Amino acid sequence: MSNTVASKEKLVADLKLVVADTEELLRATAGQAGEKVAELRTRLEQRLQGAKVALADAQAFATEKAKAAAHATDDFVHAEPWKAVGIAAALGLALGVLIGRR
């Protein structure tokens, strides 16, 4: 998985936490009265909806990129099976040497 996809997945996870915290804050302040509180709640609800849409888009993008990477890998392995075996063997050897040094 590429670094970009991993960072986008982390961003999606972080946004989910922010959305959950904001929803909890809105529930906690539901009984509060006052013009400023009502205005703030309205702005928060609007921004929360925008954040949910952006979160869904980011999640769809990350999923799409991960699927594309998986398909590209599958195509490569089917087109060049011996290269794939050689690469896997080289990576296994390198990991074995690194682990063996400990």
Rank of each mutant, 00 (worst) to 15 (best):
A72P: 02
G34S: 09
I99S: 06
A51V: 11
L25A: 11
A6K: 14
L11V: 09
A13K: 15
T42V: 03
R101L: 04
A13V: 07
A13Q: 02
L98W: 06
T63R: 09
D21E: 14
V5E: 04
N3K: 14
A60S: 14
L98P: 00
D74F: 09
S2M: 04
G96Q: 09
R102D: 07
V97C: 04
A72Q: 11
A88L: 13
T73A: 10
V77P: 07
A51S: 14
R102G: 15
G31S: 08
E35W: 00
R43P: 01
G86F: 01
T4N: 04
E24Y: 08
A30T: 05
D21C: 13
L25M: 06
G92N: 06
K10G: 01
D21M: 15
D75G: 03
A54Y: 05
L48V: 10
T42H: 11
I99R: 05
L11H: 08
A66P: 01
A90T: 03
T22C: 10
L15D: 11
P81V: 06
V53L: 10
V19Q: 11
E39V: 03
I99Y: 08
K65A: 15
M1W: 12
G100V: 10
V12N: 01
A66Y: 01
G100R: 07
A38S: 07
G34K: 03
Q46M: 06
T73P: 00
D74Q: 05
G92A: 13
V85I: 15
A79V: 03
Q49N: 09
S2D: 09
A94L: 07
G31Q: 09
A60N: 05
I99L: 03
H71P: 02
V19L: 00
A70E: 04
A30K: 00
D14Q: 15
R47Q: 14
K65N: 02
G86H: 00
A72G: 09
L25V: 15
F76R: 13
V12S: 10
I87E: 00
K36H: 11
A60W: 04
K67V: 07
D57I: 13
G31P: 03
T63A: 11
Q49W: 03
A33Y: 01
A54K: 10
A70P: 03
Q59A: 08
A88Q: 10
A62H: 13
D75P: 05
G96C: 04
Q49K: 12
L48K: 14
E39Y: 05
A30H: 07
F76V: 02
A54C: 01
G31R: 06
K52P: 08
L17V: 15
V53K: 07
N3Y: 10
A90M: 06
F76H: 12
P81W: 00
R43D: 08
L40W: 11
D57W: 08
